[in-house]
């Protein structure tokens, strides 16, 4: 009996050590995420496309650091096959923000949604080793949605009257895509409920712009840097 408990102790302490290692990675990840987010903030007030481009480039420059840290997480998990979800709670929150940052940057660049597998590619993780949980990806997308109303408001204030149309088209598409899902009554559904309000807010801005004849007639949305 004692021997068994001794064995448990060493195994549990080992798993405690794993947590300690993960925590250290996450603490660094937290820093990178924070700085990357701060670097992306000025996009709200960038007055020229050049300025916006520089902001995006600055933000993208942190991606290698994210890759390094996710590969560290992957490495920790690699030796513990099947235990991804045992430690998942440790990186959930940060991953939401990472997905948000990557896909917001991507959208600003291309007006397209970054897919789940593109997120994994960008982070340099191999799905069979360390995949990004699908619900984490979806929550990250909801985070973009909650950033976009602010972005639209600031863009219009800065005189960019095309932006609401693009954002509205994007969010509207995202919204109807989310409606396909059967969500449980959990965090994700709550976040999805918020998406509706974001879309509504963006449509209101679009309406404001339209009604004042500020909107050009060219229907096709164009990416910012086009």
């Amino acid at each position: 009996m004692e021997m068994q408990f001794e064995a448990f102790r060493s195994q549990l302490e080992e798993s405690g050590a794993v947590r300690e290692r993960i925590r250290a990675v996450i603490s660094e990840l937290d820093n990178v995420v924070r700085v990357m987010q701060a670097s992306l903030l000025p996009v709200h007030h960038a007055t020229t496309q050049q300025a916006a481009k520089e902001v995006l480039n600055k933000a993208k420059s942190y991606i290698p650091q994210l890759q390094k840290l996710y590969s560290q997480l992957a490495e920790i998990i690699r030796d513990r096959p099947g235990q991804y979800y045992r430690y998942h709670d440790h990186w959930r929150n940060q991953t939401h923000t990472v997905v948000f940052l990557l896909s917001f940057v991507h959208w600003l660049d291309t007006q397209l949604l970054l897919s789940h597998s593109e997120v994994e590619t960008l982070l340099g993780v191999k799905p069979e080793e360390f995949s990004i949980d699908i619900e984490d990806y979806l929550i990250g997308l909801c985070n973009i949605s909650s950033e976009l109303p602010r972005y639209v408001v600031n863009r219009v204030t800065a005189g960019d009257y095309e932006c609401p149309r693009q954002v509205s088209a994007f969010l509207s598409d995202l919204f109807s895509a989310f409606r396909i899902l059967n969500l449980r009554n959990d965090l994700l559904r709550k976040r999805f409920d918020g998406l509706k309000y974001d879309l509504k807010k963006v449509e209101e801005v679009l309406y404001d712009v339209k009604i004042r004849g500020l909107l050009s007639n060219q229907a096709a949305p164009k990416p910012m840097e086009s």
Binding site: S172, F175, R179, D193, K196, Y197, L199, K200, E203
Partner: peptide, 11 residues
């Protein structure tokens, strides 16, 4: 409420 909000959101 959800129907109303998404209805408004959908125009």
């Amino acid at each position: 409420m959800r129907l109303a909000v998404s209805g408004v959101a959908a125009g």
